[in-house]
Nucleic acid binder design. Structure first.
Lengths: 246, 246
DNA sequence: GCATACCTCGTTGTATACCAGTAGGTATGC
DNA sequence: GCATACCTACTGGTATACAACGAGGTATGC
């Protein structure tokens, strides 16, 4: 059994994924500071693979380094998330246009169609499952459009938004809406109605985005309530108890 | 005199820039292979900063590594460049739409307008100068639209396309056209005519892209003429004399 | 009590030493 | 002559040692 075609960087990759998971699971909180040595101990690796992992995470916008002063998990920047949503919308609308111009549209869209036209009683009900499915829908929409670079960029944005979409605590109410909207969007694309499909997609993303805005306001309120007032649009680590080590 | 606010990673940054320049100036040719030790000698640094630089270049798509088999400059992949052009067009068209919806449009666009409505006798004539200006026009168009993330992504794409746009040997014939088209696009945006402006912009990019296509065909022809026939869409290092070291 | 200067400790940045795996040449058996 | 198996040299991956720099605490002068 060949485990993977490229064996190199096993540790660095593992450390990268570990830290990223820690951030996504909020074991590392936005604002938390740590040093390379701490992280090396925490992950059991040496500084070299840790640094490589951190540099990748830095480029992807999850952490930042001050030259001789340690690292920190980037505080939430909601303005930045808003911008990401905008770019995401632009890319997906472009994908829709491209899809509508495809020759073998029906065949291409068939797999997605199958996923999203299941009868009501066979729909997934659990939140995280639907969240995954939803993410997959949008990714596939772009991927199916056929531009690899656009797919890569969209994937990157999706991942960066995931941390905040995971907070979407009111999602349960929107599960059925999600199924219906996705199905409707696909149908519209199948009819090659470009503008209507784009409008529907925009509205769909906007809905999800409004959830995020609610969370934003809630978190800002919480942060202001218990913290000092100097946190404009950033959410600091709530207490000093959220140490990275241990 | 404070040379720079962040002093860290001086060597790694320098090495990164050096290698990138080598690639852009074709001192390192697409397909060239090299090891980390060679590159360390070549740049005078140790492997650590060299590796950091290479990882960055890898993520940006300029080089690739095979685990225990050395690095190589990524061969030209014209399909990939085509995709980048597509994404670029999508982003810039979105920027145009956003610009047309701006409140203080005239003020915002004023600097660009000043640059591109100079009388004929004051226009730049040298190729590389106009190339820079042209790149700047498109970057500013996006930046002015106000989405930082979109700007960042667009900037990244622009840089990746630069290596091939530098080959645009027929540009001289298009200098006047470039000035005229940029000016016209700006005027159209000022009138808030979204679709016309987008169409003009698309056509403008398409023209530049056709130059690239010509180069593509030419280079493929050259590569096939002197190399073996197994290079589908990749351009290998022409001869074994293009060694990285020395 | 306060400001300032110094010193220490911890941080990242860089260099080097060590490890593991692979490609490719070479020798050997047929 | 050919195929196969081994062996070596070189690769990137990882760990560690060393250097330079900065923040922050502490002591000292006022």
């Amino acid at each position: 059994m060949i485990s993977s075609p490229r064996r190199g960087k096993q540790l660095a990759d593992k450390v990268y994924q570990d830290i990223k998971d820690d951030i996504f699971e909020f074991r590392l909180l936005p604002g938390d500071r740590f040093s390379e040595n701490e992280m090396a101990q925490r992950t059991g690796a040496s500084r070299t693979p840790v640094r490589e992992a951190l540099f990748r995470l830095e480029r992807e916008g999850y952490v930042e380094v001050s030259p001789r002063n340690g690292w920190q998990v980037k505080p939430f920047d909601f303005h930045y998330f808003e911008e990401l949503y905008d770019v995401r919308t632009v890319l997906e609308c472009a994908a829709v246009r491209r899809l509508c111009e495809l020759e073998n549209l029906a065949d291409t869209l068939q797999p997605l169609m199958a996923l999203w036209s299941v009868p009501e009683d066979q729909r997934l009900r659990d939140i995280s499952g639907v969240l995954n499915l939803d993410e997959n829908f949008h990714s596939e929409l772009v991927r199916t459009a056929g531009n690899g670079e656009m797919t890569r960029i969209h994937q990157n944005i999706t991942e960066r938004l995931r941390i905040i979409r995971r907070l979407d605590f009111t999602k349960r109410a929107r599960i059925d809406a999600t199924y219906d909207e996705h199905h409707a969007i696909l149908e519209t694309i199948l009819h090659r109605w470009v503008e209507p499909a784009q409008i529907m997609l925009k509205a769909h993303i906007e809905a999800s985005r409004n959830e995020v805005r609610k969370i934003t306001l809630h978190m800002l309120y919480e942060a202001r309530r218990q913290g000092s007032g100097d946190t404009g649009d950033a959410l600091p680590a709530p207490t000093s108890g959220s140490r990275a080590g241990a």
